[in-house]
């Protein structure tokens, strides 16, 4: 029972998720948030792994995930957005195949964790990572915009990022598959709203310090490695 309670906390289900969200808001440092998000769900998987999840229980993770997906639609702070997305995605681990849980947790936590890093980069340049506050980022900082776009696409489980294959794996239960797909739809809607707030609009009149070429290349390589690893593990690449 204690293990199950711990799993509620580490694979955050509403209202236990407030602990996770509270911790994220306390941690101001993007790197600390990044590390926390990568480690947190793995503890949850550890506690949940040996626990059989009763069938009647499935509605809770779905409702919790849907709740955060719906909230995402009107969140404009990138850090908060990444935290809510993580809550929504990590709730879905409860319905994954037990053998897939560690990898699903990893694939669902990497993109929001990267968003924390990008949130830090935006805060350093503009004072806040707030969608719609400045806009025109695509014109003023194209490399940073590209990194943001790719990470957001990874976060909403766009192929060929690993989240896509993780989501496909969650559809093995026919009865709840429509609910999972609906949550997926909300993620996409929320991500585009967020992205448009940052990217579109007129260019900033004052010059913005874009990410360096080597930094952008490193980030792209990291995403490439993640994609290749996921393709290899899912049997799509030789």
């Amino acid at each position: 029972m204690m293990k199950l309670l711990a799993a509620f906390l580490f694979l955050p289900l509403f209202p236990f998720s407030m602990v996770f969200n509270g911790l994220l808001s306390k941690l101001g440092n993007p790197t600390a948030r990044f590390m926390l998000l990568l480690a947190w769900p793995q503890f949850g998987v550890f506690f949940l792994h040996a626990q059989p999840v009763p069938e009647f229980f499935i509605a809770w993770p779905l409702l919790s995930s849907g709740f955060y997906a719906l909230r995402l639609l009107t969140v404009r702070d990138l850090g908060l957005w990444a935290g809510f997305l993580a809550c929504s995605a990590l709730s879905l681990i409860w319905i994954a195949n037990p053998s897939d849980m560690p990898m699903v947790a990893l694939w669902f936590s990497i993109p929001p964790a990267l968003l924390f890093l990008l949130s830090g980069a935006l805060e350093r340049r503009f004072g806040a990572a707030y969608s719609g506050l400045y806009g025109g980022l695509a014109g003023s900082a194209p490399k940073l915009s590209g990194m943001l776009v790719m990470t957001l696409l990874a976060a909403i489980a766009t192929p060929p990022f690993p989240g896509f294959f993780a989501m496909l794996g969650l559809l093995h239960r026919t009865g709840i598959a429509p609910a999972v797909l609906f949550i997926w739809l909300l993620w996409g809607w929320a991500a585009i709203r967020l992205m448009q707030g940052f990217l579109s609009g007129s260019k900033e009149p004052t010059p913005v310090n874009d990410v360096g070429r080597s930094g952008a290349l490193l980030f792209a390589c990291l995403l490439g490695v993640i994609v290749f690893a996921s393709l290899y593990l899912k049997g799509g690449a030789p």
Partner: peptide, 22 residues
């Protein structure tokens, strides 16, 4: 990226296509 109408209708297309993906 500077035309709001282009962004709005691109989003309409994206959302309808997502509805069709599912």
């Amino acid at each position: 990226l500077e035309r709001p109408a282009a962004q709005r209708y691109a989003f309409w297309t994206f959302f309808t296509y997502r509805i069709g993906d599912l």
